[in-house]
Write a protein that binds this DNA or RNA. Sequence first.
DNA 1: CCGGAAGTCAAACGTTCGTTTCAATCATAC
DNA 2: GTATGATTGAAACGAACGTTTGACTTCCGG
Lengths: 234, 234
Amino acid sequence: MASETKDRILDVAERLFADRGYPATSLRDITAEAAVNLASVNYHFGAKESLLAALLERRFAPLNRRRLELLDEIEVEVGAGRPAVEEVLRAFLAPPFEMQQKWGASGRTFLRLVGRLHAETNDEHRATYLRHFEEVRRRFTSALHRALPHLEATDVHWRMMFLMGSMAFAMVEGLTPRPGGPPPRDPDEVLDALLCFAAAGVAAPSPARVPIDAGRPDRPGFVVGEEAPAARGR
Amino acid sequence: MASETKDRILDVAERLFADRGYPATSLRDITAEAAVNLASVNYHFGAKESLLAALLERRFAPLNRRRLELLDEIEVEVGAGRPAVEEVLRAFLAPPFEMQQKWGASGRTFLRLVGRLHAETNDEHRATYLRHFEEVRRRFTSALHRALPHLEATDVHWRMMFLMGSMAFAMVEGLTPRPGGPPPRDPDEVLDALLCFAAAGVAAPSPARVPIDAGRPDRPGFVVGEEAPAARGR
DNA sequence: CCGGAAGTCAAACGTTCGTTTCAATCATAC
DNA sequence: GTATGATTGAAACGAACGTTTGACTTCCGG
């Protein structure tokens, strides 16, 4: 099954897509660097788009399996109780970082690619990509809501978004050395820093939703709300 | 100066770049939709790359001017004292959202484009883009460090990264309606939610850096470091 | 009315793209 | 050894790309 050629193509494509982006990477770039024939991509994968899909499948399947596995453990442990926010976040954020250690440089490359795909919004690639992600997002959002029952569902959704944004940025920026940016760190440290930031952000008191007719103070949004002084119509 | 044609090209290009990404948008797409001749892009802007640069210039110049202006106000106000974290964050995050109200649909489009460019890492576009951003990042990072003097510089840098990630994601995701995602919200609400999340995250206690010889507990990273076990800022 | 700059237009330029074709090669079972 | 299916190879396909060209309008100061 896993022929030598096929794997070499996947490895090189992963790196080039991560470095230059999907549309900016040509099959000729890939096949030249992998030292295989141009036609072999279409032979083994059918089309460029399917190559991307195969590439995502290879990494995402075990990654998301691991995430859900950790979440399962948490849910078994707490039963009907409230899971701890930090535990849920750790189950979500740790696997990509573990992965990079297990898979070495190519795991790191993949993380950069993922960070990129979050913004690479050709709707077709996005569908390819999101298919892998949807169940994970749904289950973690719901676990997070159980951990933070005083928040409204829409707030949990948004914080999940912000979390994903931080994660994506940490992956693409934190793992690509850049002049002027923070020095690249040990992945474990990045994970700790991210968890720390994310846990505080996700568990923040809910934003005060001042009713529109209440004369808005100069700077709303930071009045601690906890549970909605005024239930926001919605 | 600002000819009819030139503006139409800029407007359409902004939208298409935001929708499909820069490399995936052809000049023929742009000129067809703008109902101008294909050659006029090269006539007015020289090349596709310069079109992107002009497009960024048009929006970023006033946007970042506004950010720095708000930051200046804060720094004048507090003098040698500590600025408030929320104020600094607001100065950073509010202008893009204000902009979208002032510029209407095309402001919103631009925000999507910006969110995208954060990941669009062809090094040349990135240079084009980062040039507009570098001073802002530097000054806000330093203001943030003054607001949170107990944090190490490297932690502040990283949290600035996470913040930018949340912002980028909020822009590209929060403003593009997606099935299954959170319902699109009023921009003011997004800003409030983002500020709330970001303020808590940025001001979180610094991650515990356990010395390597200390037998690491099973789950490090949430031991509250620094000061006050529960004094989460506010 | 005219001359010339500014802008538009259709057409073509040379490249590069993803994909296809088909003969050559390889491995394996008979 | 030879037939057979899987893989590789070199070459070409048509389409799309960014850019350039040169003739054609449009406009305006003299």
